[in-house]
Nucleic acid binder design. Structure first.
Lengths: 162, 162
DNA sequence: TAAATAAGGATATCCTTTGTCCTTGATAGG
DNA sequence: CCTATCAAGGACAAAGGATATCCTTATTTA
C-alpha cells in the first residue's frame, strides 16, 4: 500500500506555487523541469489539483497554474486527496456474510466491526493531514533550505512565471 | 492506495482463532471455508502471520493454526503489518535533489520536510492500530453478533478444530 | 497569425495484487 | 509402519493499477 508518486509531486509543486507573486502563473513545463519530472505525466497530477479547485489555470503563452487560495487555507489532506482520491485504504468485502452458519435472510445491523476499526485508523491519518497547512510546509522549508538556494530557486521560478 | 484484501482476511481469521480452546488448531481449509475465501491464497496470508510469530502451526491431520499469544496482547497493527508489510505509505524519491539551482556538492541535512509530514500521518495511523487489541474486536463481536449465530459459529469451528 | 498552454483521450509498459497449481517435508492416527 | 492431512513455499498466470508517452483540441497571449 503505497501512495502514488504523484502525491509527492503535487505537494512539492504546491510549495513552489505558494511562493508565486499574486496574479502570476507557472507552467507544467517549468514545474516539471524544476523537479526533474516527466512533463506529460506531471500534467495529470496538476489536472487533479485543478479539478479539485485547488489551483486556477490560465491558457496560452505565459499561462499555467497558481493557487486558488492562500497557502494558510490549503491543507495537505486536500492536496493528497485531489491526486490520490478519497477512497478509504481499507475496503470491507463483508466476508462475514459467507459464514456457513448464517441464516439466508440474515440482515446486518451495522458495518463490520473490523472495518469500523480500520476506518478509524484511516480517519486518524486524514486528521493529521488535515491539520497541516501548505503554509506550515513553506515555513519549515524557509527555515531549512540554504538561503542561497532558496533565493536562486525563487529567481529561477520568477524568470519562468507568466 | 488500498490495503491488500489479505489484511481483512487475516483480521477475521485471528478473531476466529481467538475463540479456539487452548491447545487446539484450526486448518487453512476450515478458515477458508468459514469465510468463503480461496484456500491456497488465504494460506499466503496465514504464512505471513506465522512468519511474524503471531501464530503457532502444527502439521499433519488435526494440524493448523492457533494464536501464539493471548488476544489481549495481540494488536491490530501487528496483524496488519504481518500481512501488508512495514513499509511507509509515503515514499520520498527526494525530488528536491533535481532542483536545477542546486550546487552539485549540495548535501542534505535531514529528510525532506514533505516526507516528514507524510510520515507523521503514517505514524498516526499506526498508533491508532497499535491501540486496538484483538481482544477488543472479540469484545465488540460478542456484543454485536446475534447470540444464535455466535453459538453456531463457535460449534462449527469446534467440530473442525484439531 | 503563430506559438504556447491546459485538458484530456488513447495507448503501452511495468509492477503489484490476486489466484491457482504443484512439490516437499512433517505429523497424527490407524 | 502407512497413509491421509497439513503447513510451507516455489512457479506461474490473470487482472488491475501505476507510470509514463503521444496525440488532438480549444484557448489565449504576444
Amino acid at each position: 500500500m503505497i501512495l502514488k508518486s504523484q502525491v509527492e509531486w503535487a505537494l512539492h509543486c504546491c510549495a513552489i506555487l505558494a511562493g508565486l507573486p499574486d496574479g502570476r502563473y507557472l507552467s507544467t513545463k517549468a514545474l516539471a523541469e524544476f523537479h526533474g519530472l516527466p512533463k506529460e505525466y506531471l500534467s495529470k497530477a496538476l489536472q487533479g489539483l485543478s479539478q479539485a479547485g485547488l489551483v486556477d489555470t490560465s491558457l496560452g503563452p505565459s499561462g499555467g497554474y497558481r493557487l486558488a487560495k492562500p497557502p494558510a487555507e490549503l491543507t495537505f489532506l486536500e492536496i493528497v486527496e485531489a491526486v490520490e482520491g478519497r477512497q478509504r485504504t481499507f475496503v470491507c468485502t463483508n466476508i462475514r456474510a459467507n459464514n456457513p452458519c448464517r441464516p439466508k435472510d440474515h440482515c446486518e445491523s451495522s458495518p463490520c466491526a473490523v472495518a469500523r476499526i480500520m476506518w478509524e485508523a484511516d480517519e486518524a491519518w486524514r486528521a493529521k493531514l488535515r491539520g497541516v497547512k501548505l503554509s506550515d510546509l513553506v515555513g519549515i522549508l524557509s527555515q531549512e533550505v540554504a538561503p542561497e538556494l532558496w533565493k536562486s530557486s525563487f529567481e529561477w521560478v520568477l524568470e519562468r512565471a507568466g
